[in-house]
Design a protein around this nucleic acid. Structure first.
Lengths: 149, 149
DNA sequence: CACGATTTAATCGTATACGATACAATTACT
DNA sequence: AGTAATTGTATCGTATACGATTAAATCGTG
C-alpha cells in the first residue's frame, strides 16, 4: 500500500515542468538574439527600470549574487549593459542598459509576443494563473521566511 | 512610452520565481537526507514505478540525457539506486531502487508533507492551480512540438 | 550478409542556481 | 578615534539544465 502522492499530482512537479517548458520556448525564441531566458528576464526588469544596483536587481529577480554576478558579467561582455561602481558608496555597483538593449527591445518584444500568442492562452486563463501563482509564491516565501531559511 | 508588459505581469516570470521558491523550500527539507530537489523528483517517480529505463525515466521527468545521466550516477554513488544495462538490448539501461530508498521513503514523505502543510495551501487552490498549470504546460508543449523544436 | 537508418545512453561545453565564504566599504557604537 | 557590526559584491564549489555530438547497439531493407 503506497502512501505517496503520484508524481503527476504534485504541485511542485507541475510548476517544475511548466517552468522547464517556458525555458525551452523562450530559449528557442531568444537564441537568434544571443540571449538566454534568464538574461531576457534581466532585460525585462531593466527595460522597466534602468540604473539600479546589483542588490536591487537581485531582489527584483529573487536571485543571489552567486547567480547574478556572472550573468551580468556575461551580458556586459555581450554589449547589453555596463556596470559602474558607485563613487558615493563603493560597495554598490550600478547597472546601465546600453543602446543595443534599447535598439533590440522592440524586435525581441515582438518575437516573444508572437510566440506567446501562438500558444493560445486565454486571457482569463492567464489572469487566473497569475493570481493563483502569486498567491502560491507568497505562501512559499512566507513559509521559507518563518523557517529562518 | 513603453510598450512592454512589466516583469510582474509576465506569466513566465510568475512560474519562474514560484519554481525557484519550491526549489528552496524542498532543498531545505531534503538537505538532511542528502538529497537535492530534482533527485527527490526522481525518487518520487521511482517510488511510483520502479525498474524503468533511462529513456522512460527521462520521458516521465521531461529531462534529457545531459541532465539525467549525471544525476542518476550521483544517486547511484550515494546508494539510492543502481543502474543495470539490459542483456536483451544493450542500448537500454534499467534503474532499480535500493533498500535505502525504500527505508527512507516514509521519513522523507513525512517531512515533506509537514512542510507543505505549513504553507497552508487550500485544497481548492491546489486543485485549481494543478488544473491550470497542466493546461498551460500542454499548450507550451504543443507549441514547441509544432515549431519543430 | 552488408549496410543504412534509427534508437539509447553518454559526453561535452555552456549557462544558470544555490549557499557558503571572503573581502572591501560603510555604519554604528564606545 | 578606534573598533565592532553590518552591508554589498565577488568568488567558490556543487548541482542541475540544455542542446549538440558521439558511440554503441538494434532494426529494417535490399
Amino acid at each position: 500500500m503506497n502512501d505517496f502522492l503520484t508524481l503527476n499530482k504534485q504541485l511542485c512537479f507541475a510548476v517544475y515542468e511548466t517552468a522547464g517548458e517556458f525555458n525551452k520556448l523562450y530559449t528557442s525564441v531568444l537564441q537568434p538574439f544571443e540571449l538566454t531566458y534568464p538574461q531576457y528576464l534581466v532585460l525585462l526588469s531593466l527595460w522597466e527600470k534602468d540604473e539600479v544596483t546589483m542588490k536591487e536587481l537581485g531582489a527584483k529577480l529573487n536571485l543571489g549574487t552567486g547567480t547574478l554576478t556572472p550573468m551580468i558579467s556575461r551580458m556586459e561582455a555581450n554589449g547589453w549593459l555596463r556596470k559602474e561602481r558607485s563613487k558615493e558608496d563603493e560597495r554598490k555597483v550600478f547597472i546601465y542598459l546600453k543602446t543595443k538593449a534599447r535598439i533590440e527591445q522592440p524586435h525581441i518584444t515582438k518575437r516573444v509576443a508572437e510566440e506567446i500568442n501562438l500558444c493560445k492562452i486565454e486571457r482569463d486563463e492567464y489572469e487566473q494563473l497569475m493570481k493563483n501563482l502569486n498567491g502560491l509564491h507568497r505562501k512559499l516565501k512566507e513559509r521559507l521566511k518563518s523557517a529562518g531559511a
